[in-house]
Simulated assay, not measured.
Amino acid sequence: MKKATKVFVIVFIVILFTGFGFYFYQLYEVAKGISLKEASVANVRFEGFNPLIGDFYPDSVEFTFRIKVYNPSGYGVDLDKITYTVYVEEIFLGKGFVENLYIAPKTETSLDFKLKTESSDILSLIGDLLVRGDNVVDYRVNGYVILPIKFFGVVRVFSVEIPYNYEGFYVLPVKPPWGRPETKLVSGWWESTTIHLCSTVKATVVVKGSISGKMEIQVKKDIPLWPDKVVYSKSFYVNIPVGDQKIFTIYFHPSEASSWKLRGYYIVVKLNNQEIWSQESDYPPRLKVLQ
């Protein structure tokens, strides 16, 4: 009888630890792959705000943030919570958490959360940006994905915290009162304005503040009697305060020489998808390519 009891206890312990080990293996597979693929601003809503009559300072603003959780493993997982702390232009906006989440296997799950503020710091910041002709705000979101470790999926043993940190910018759905940034804030030139085909030439662009957002440097073909064509593009994220400047360089390798159907090439600068500067139409300063 004692022998049978001993065998039963041993079998029970083996089954117990096998089950425990299998469950921990599942959690290991999930934990090593689960991640936040994105934490971004999905929408911004203002109250008490009317730029058409010169009122650029809202009474309140509500940010909607979207986080995307990716679970590449073959196992579904229950999350305790996802915490978040948000800063706008390095000013604290708010914090909170989303709890009791299930992330299905091999899926990307989107979750939205809202933060509304009447903080004078945030409202003054937005108003000041718009008054000086800027409608781009920087943000930073950080926090933890908290994964519970449970014995046989029932009894909580401890938790694993997976940190995340995302930074980005958002173009406010408001047109600044002074339109786009002044073109005198941007200048650019080719290192040489005449080169031979198959050569590489450097272009330099200097941008002065205050400018922030997504800046794109393009090279376009100057085509007679036909829309010009973008043949090179490189994007940068910029946040240049008043009084500062930043220098950008690109290297361009033309694939076609100048001719009757192609005058040459020129530099264009765009900010938040709006063209803010392009080279004068003369040669030079535009680039001519010889055979």
Rank of each mutant, 00 (worst) to 15 (best):
residue 75 Y to P: 02
residue 76 G to P: 00
residue 77 V to Q: 12
residue 78 D to P: 09
residue 78 D to N: 13
residue 78 D to W: 13
residue 79 L to R: 08
residue 79 L to G: 06
residue 79 L to I: 05
residue 79 L to Y: 10
residue 79 L to H: 07
residue 79 L to C: 10
residue 80 D to F: 05
residue 82 I to N: 01
residue 82 I to C: 05
residue 82 I to R: 02
residue 83 T to D: 13
residue 83 T to H: 10
residue 83 T to N: 12
residue 85 T to N: 11
residue 86 V to P: 11
residue 87 Y to A: 14
residue 88 V to P: 07
residue 88 V to I: 15
residue 89 E to W: 02
residue 89 E to D: 10
residue 89 E to H: 03
residue 89 E to Y: 02
residue 90 E to H: 08
residue 90 E to W: 13
residue 90 E to Q: 13
residue 90 E to A: 10
residue 90 E to V: 06
residue 90 E to K: 15
residue 91 I to F: 14
residue 91 I to G: 03
residue 92 F to Y: 15
residue 92 F to C: 09
residue 92 F to A: 05
residue 94 G to V: 05
residue 94 G to S: 08
residue 94 G to K: 04
residue 95 K to V: 02
residue 95 K to E: 15
residue 95 K to F: 11
residue 96 G to V: 04
residue 96 G to K: 04
residue 97 F to E: 15
residue 97 F to G: 02
residue 97 F to H: 09
residue 97 F to M: 09
residue 97 F to Q: 15
residue 98 V to E: 07
residue 98 V to T: 08
residue 98 V to C: 00
residue 98 V to I: 15
residue 99 E to H: 12
residue 99 E to A: 15
residue 99 E to D: 14
residue 99 E to K: 15
residue 99 E to R: 13
residue 100 N to C: 04
residue 100 N to W: 06
residue 100 N to V: 05
residue 101 L to N: 11
residue 101 L to T: 03
residue 101 L to E: 05
residue 101 L to D: 07
residue 103 I to Y: 08
residue 104 A to M: 05
residue 104 A to K: 09
residue 104 A to W: 05
residue 104 A to E: 08
residue 104 A to T: 07
residue 104 A to Q: 09
residue 104 A to N: 06
residue 105 P to V: 06
residue 105 P to W: 06
residue 107 T to V: 08
residue 107 T to Q: 13
residue 108 E to M: 08
residue 109 T to R: 06
residue 110 S to W: 05
residue 110 S to R: 09
residue 110 S to M: 08
residue 111 L to M: 14
residue 111 L to E: 00
residue 111 L to R: 09
residue 111 L to Q: 03
residue 112 D to S: 13
residue 112 D to H: 13
residue 113 F to V: 08
residue 113 F to Y: 14
residue 113 F to I: 01
residue 113 F to W: 04
residue 113 F to N: 00
residue 114 K to G: 06
residue 114 K to Y: 03
residue 114 K to I: 06
residue 115 L to S: 03
residue 115 L to A: 08
residue 115 L to Q: 05
residue 116 K to A: 12
residue 116 K to G: 11
residue 117 T to M: 01
residue 117 T to V: 05
residue 118 E to N: 09
residue 118 E to S: 14
residue 119 S to C: 13
residue 121 D to R: 10
residue 121 D to Y: 13
residue 123 L to S: 05
residue 123 L to F: 02
residue 123 L to E: 01
residue 123 L to Y: 00
residue 124 S to G: 13
residue 124 S to A: 10
residue 125 L to D: 02
residue 125 L to V: 01
residue 126 I to Q: 01
residue 127 G to W: 07
residue 127 G to P: 08
residue 127 G to E: 03
residue 128 D to P: 05
residue 129 L to I: 00
residue 130 L to G: 00
residue 130 L to F: 01
residue 131 V to S: 11
residue 131 V to L: 15
residue 131 V to P: 00
residue 131 V to F: 11
residue 132 R to E: 09
residue 133 G to T: 01
residue 133 G to N: 02
residue 133 G to W: 01
residue 134 D to K: 04
residue 134 D to S: 14
residue 136 V to P: 00
residue 136 V to N: 15
residue 137 V to Y: 04
residue 137 V to R: 01
residue 137 V to I: 15
residue 138 D to E: 08
residue 138 D to P: 00
residue 138 D to C: 05
residue 139 Y to S: 07
residue 140 R to Y: 12
residue 140 R to A: 11
residue 140 R to E: 14
residue 142 N to E: 13
residue 142 N to W: 11
residue 142 N to S: 12
residue 142 N to M: 10
residue 144 Y to C: 06
residue 144 Y to Q: 12
residue 144 Y to W: 12
residue 145 V to K: 07
residue 145 V to P: 12
